[in-house]
Design a protein around this nucleic acid. Sequence first.
DNA 1: GCTTAGAGTTCACTAGTTGGACATAGACGG
DNA 2: CCGTCTATGTCCAACTAGTGAACTCTAAGC
Lengths: 403, 403
Amino acid sequence: METPGSQSSLHRANLERVVRAVRLAGSLTQAEIARTTGLSAATVSNIVRELKDGGTVEVTPTSAGGRRARSVSLSGDAGIVIGVDFGHTHLRVAVGNLAHQVLAEESEPLDVDASSAQGFDRAEQLVSRLIVATGVDRSKIAGVGLGVPGPIDVESGTLGSTSILPGWSGTRPAEELRGRLGVPVHVDNDANLGALGELVWGSGRGVRDLAYIKVASGVGAGLVINGKIYRGPGGTAGEIGHITLDESGPVCRCGNRGCLETFTAARYVLPLLRSSHGTDLTMEAMVRLARDGDPGCRRVVADVGRHIGSGVANLCNLLNPSRVVLGGDLAEAGELVLGPIRESVGRYAIPSAGRQLSVLPGALGGRAEVLGALALALSEMGDSTLLDGSAAGARPTATPVFT
Amino acid sequence: METPGSQSSLHRANLERVVRAVRLAGSLTQAEIARTTGLSAATVSNIVRELKDGGTVEVTPTSAGGRRARSVSLSGDAGIVIGVDFGHTHLRVAVGNLAHQVLAEESEPLDVDASSAQGFDRAEQLVSRLIVATGVDRSKIAGVGLGVPGPIDVESGTLGSTSILPGWSGTRPAEELRGRLGVPVHVDNDANLGALGELVWGSGRGVRDLAYIKVASGVGAGLVINGKIYRGPGGTAGEIGHITLDESGPVCRCGNRGCLETFTAARYVLPLLRSSHGTDLTMEAMVRLARDGDPGCRRVVADVGRHIGSGVANLCNLLNPSRVVLGGDLAEAGELVLGPIRESVGRYAIPSAGRQLSVLPGALGGRAEVLGALALALSEMGDSTLLDGSAAGARPTATPVFT
DNA sequence: GCTTAGAGTTCACTAGTTGGACATAGACGG
DNA sequence: CCGTCTATGTCCAACTAGTGAACTCTAAGC
């Protein structure tokens, strides 16, 4: 039945068209669907009936004062997706439905030195708790997105060596979680997911090309090109932390000198304040102090901003994204860091590239990654699962022809 | 008739499938087409007949010793495309057919100070000459690709200020040429077209992500992501020439210091050899001398390579392309420049990104841009024009639904 | 010479979209 | 309060296009 190029595939594509249109608009009348999708009213009528019978869509008997327009919207319980994000110190889980609504979200602290098995146990428990709390049917879970803080080979699903969660290297997080939850799990690293999260729910709404820069203990970037995460052929695109700013700068953990990271990441920057602010200063605390007016912290934050700006200027010259979103703890510093970034970009990027760039703080804070994981689950099931997942087994799953 | 989501559009998509399959393979039997496209034999039979009647395809009554397999191939004269490339000193024109074959190619010197009108006159004459020489029918021209050396806004088609062809700023080359030739003209800058050319005919065959670096009087990069030219939302992606390598380096014409260009572009590099080699040394001559063993030139070429390598390392960390192709005059230096580039990349790029990168010299030399223009014309008419351009007006042009 | 097997065609059937006719129900004007 | 108007959604007949199965054809192998 996987008819590659015909009829049924066309029908399938049209189903997806309608669902997409409804999702983007929230709710539409059939006539509106016909206009936006370009399909004829008759076809829309058939498709809506099919979707309604399948449970994917709900038809409410007219809300606004029209003639007799029945508004069509995605039914909230047609299927749910789950996002799981392992951070350096936190575990976050979010539950959402196919209509791109977040139903529940929760985080709890995670011990850095915990074993991966413990971590997955905790994740499984938290997921179960949220499922119960939201009262959705467990069988409705259509997919899970998983975020891990470190380099991961998306193809094989193997976590590379990561200094953030020691002892997790070489594990295959997606398989682990799939084993426990029994549904497809898709992994990606935190920077890519943060980018996706901000793109769908945060400061990136409305653009198709976006760079999300996350400054924490390291510096990473998630790139969205043409609405999709760009990982590059080797899967390691976005390593902005190790572009060289100064060939004779400080030695970086990667073995080079003057990497962006050596001027901006927590591990290199916080020591600068050790003599004045002690040894257990965190990025978060530094940002708070800076906002409260501490001159030393302000200076450091501004310096970090300037260097990030240099890196972003390079990124800008090469990729020319329309928007850069700053995430991580540092984003909390607001204009204290954005100002210097913009200034640096204006200075180092070629004018035509820098001019139309907007640099914004992330709108989601620490939630960006979980929400991105949610978005990953939604996008990975490619709107197809979204359709037949609930279609009462009417027709077997077929790969969509056109993507 | 622009039926957005149905039936006829499906048919159209299937037509394109078949054409694409045939083009990629050179020639196929119907049974093979059915297997590679996934369409049924009956459908293929109908489609082949339609294409044959339209003149897009030729059916030769069995070549290899099979049962009764008739091999299907694109008919060479179904339609032709033209590539035009304005360089700093040259004008090049190429004529190709829809089967991706180059039928004729010619270049002639162009006076830098010539007016744009003169330039277009020359281009028109050269095109006409080649059309006559190849004996193809003028009415078969399906589209033209045009390369210009300088920043161009692909949307509006307006040439930005370019120091290479003074007096051309603000003109709209595509419109000019369309007016003279009477067919659709698509423009892009030389770096992007070089990338496309190498991708389709040169060192980039077989990969989907590619960076083409062109070193001449300036330095530019053309990026191919997922098989398509990536221009970025603002249209200025690939400006590798002005990423900062050394914040306190030489002052660049762009107003910053230490741009890649200041270490690598002809205008900055050649003066280094002025005292030893005179003032009218060209990039080309320097490369030739280096190959002949001149130690000064060798050193300069190697230094340029090292700096390009630094830039490529940054590019690599950010984008992680699988291949970098070096174009322009400098590529003629071969290993003299590639060695230092690879060395620099190995040193400055993060290992996982640098490891699987291959750095190759362009295979097309100065032809990369014209051939890229040809490829642009082919791709811009999106295989659709390819179909109905010759379909004897059987059905009006429709925009393909899925892309 | 006979068999065999893959190639291409024809045909009846089916899936699926469309235009047009039709029923419906609120809005608007009198 | 009623008739008219208009946009919505549904139904039906027509049409487009792909598919499986049966069929024909041709050259190779024995």
